[in-house]
Amino acid sequence: MSVLAGSNRSAKPMPPHIVKVDKDLEALVQRFLARKRDDLQRAREALAGGEFDTIRRIGHDLKGAGEAFGFPELSNFGAALQSAAVAHNEGVLIEQLEAMEQFMARLRITLDK
């Protein structure tokens, strides 16, 4: 298992993850990413409260939408969150939420047209 960058502060920063977005979709994508940042926070709060079904639903929605918006990595995080929430696996949930937060921090949107 790879070491989480968040727990290894001296590690070299990861490079930005650049995603090209059609100009027409820019506002839509920015709203989507803002909602996902909110979901990330909601999932953390749900985990603290042991509300696994809330995390399962957040994961399910993320799995369904991420790739459609051009972010297959987010769909993968969604699938992992969903299955870990069903299994009540707190360790995996903590790891996945941390990894998702780091991924989103690296995201840079550029316009395709």
Partner: peptide, 15 residues
């Protein structure tokens, strides 16, 4: 029921 998908599909249909 997924707000993200609803918004994306709506946008594409309106176009």
């Amino acid at each position: 029921d997924n707000e993200d998908i609803r918004e994306l599909v709506s946008h594409q249909l309106r176009r």
